[in-house]
Design a protein around this nucleic acid. Structure first.
Lengths: 197, 197
DNA sequence: AAATGAATTAACCAAATGGTTAAACCAAAA
DNA sequence: TTTTGGTTTAACCATTTGGTTAATTCATTT
């Protein structure tokens, strides 16, 4: 593994664990098993290293949904698929949601919002698909924005509140992951109930 | 206003805005318009000052629901009331959810989890009420834990992702608050659809 | 008015932190 | 074999940060 890769891997781990403010350049260097000066040699500054890490992780906050929303099925079916895709997705990177939420709520890091694919890639296909089925009477009348926020919230919240959950129900990491896998079908039921006309 | 109150008020604002790692004692002193040494005179250390602030804010993460869940109505009605109460509640302290989520996910601050009223005060009455109505066939069969996580997630997520929302839809703070007020009725509809047998 | 004790301040301190530098290392080209 | 240029290291630097101290101010008690 190249030095640059070692640094990036260590920086990811430390920034995801501690956030920008909590992360220490020395911790990243130690984890990458290199000299601290190398961090600056390869990435100039903490800011630039963080930006590089964020850019590579931003796409893992919202999944790529083109595949789901180009299919020729109903909005309800699409949303069910979306939930399955999304929870599987986050289960593979369970600490990304908090990393992203923390970053966009951190003073001085507001501009990172623009790097998230929500506005351009996620919301429009969902809204379009809803309006199409809505005109055909295939879906209940809901507010699509409020609905999308609800679905994302249902999917993501357990990962943000994970420490509370693990404490309250004494869950081991595997048990948490399993609970989230079971969650997929539960949310599919909720979504179908909400959206059935 | 006493010096102690001035400090606490400033510390709240800074810790909520910047988190423990991002907060600077000097910033708190400046905001309180007092000498930095006074912070230590009154609260000894950054840790103790933070703990004091967290303890006072922890109760605003989950609302007091005794009133709602002692009523003689159905689980569905209770949950509708809960959502109304909860969103109103968070709308008054819109930055508390992120403050709490950030803290319990911060290394070294895990022990603060225990100060949240979820395990002892929030979950049990909800679960009990569900099982009562479930036996009477008054409510659809769902997994109460997954359901509670969903409701909390639906209520809270927009406040955590607020910067994304405000950016994507160009919302002013008043507009955001109004969107959340409208959200109450939308979520009530979702909940009734999910829970109706 | 003198004494007392808490409240407040300015100056200071040690450690930590992001970042720099000059020298050393090392593999490939000439 | 020497040169070259990228890579790595140890030592160093300026600033920031949480925290301390000793002196001073101020209100209250005697």
């Amino acid at each position: 593994m190249s030095t640059e890769e070692k640094i990036l891997e260590a920086a990811e781990a430390i920034f995801i664990k501690d956030g920008y403010d909590g992360a220490r350049m020395q911790d990243i260097a130690d984890r990458a098993e290199i000299n601290k000066a190398m961090l600056h040699y390869y990435f100039r500054s903490k800011d630039q290293l963080f930006e590089r890490v964020f850019n590579e992780k931003a796409k893992f906050f919202f999944p790529e949904i083109a595949g789901v929303f180009s299919k020729d099925n109903t909005f309800i079916e699409k949303m069910e698929e979306f939930v399955e895709l999304y929870i599987h997705f986050i289960n593979q990177y369970p600490f990304i949601p908090f990393f992203i939420i923390r970053t966009i709520n951190t003073s001085g890091k507001e501009s990172f919002i623009e790097k998230l694919p929500f506005k351009d890639s996620l919301a429009p296909p969902i809204f379009n698909s809803y309006f199409q089925d809505s005109q055909k009477g295939l879906v209940a009348e809901i507010n699509p924005l409020q609905f999308v926020l609800s679905v994302i919230g249902m999917c993501i919240f357990p990962f943000l509140g994970r420490p509370i959950l693990q404490h309250a129900f004494d869950l081991k990491p595997e048990q948490f992951t399993e609970l989230m896998e079971l969650r997929i079908n539960e949310l599919k039921i909720y979504i179908r109930k909400i959206l059935t006309p």
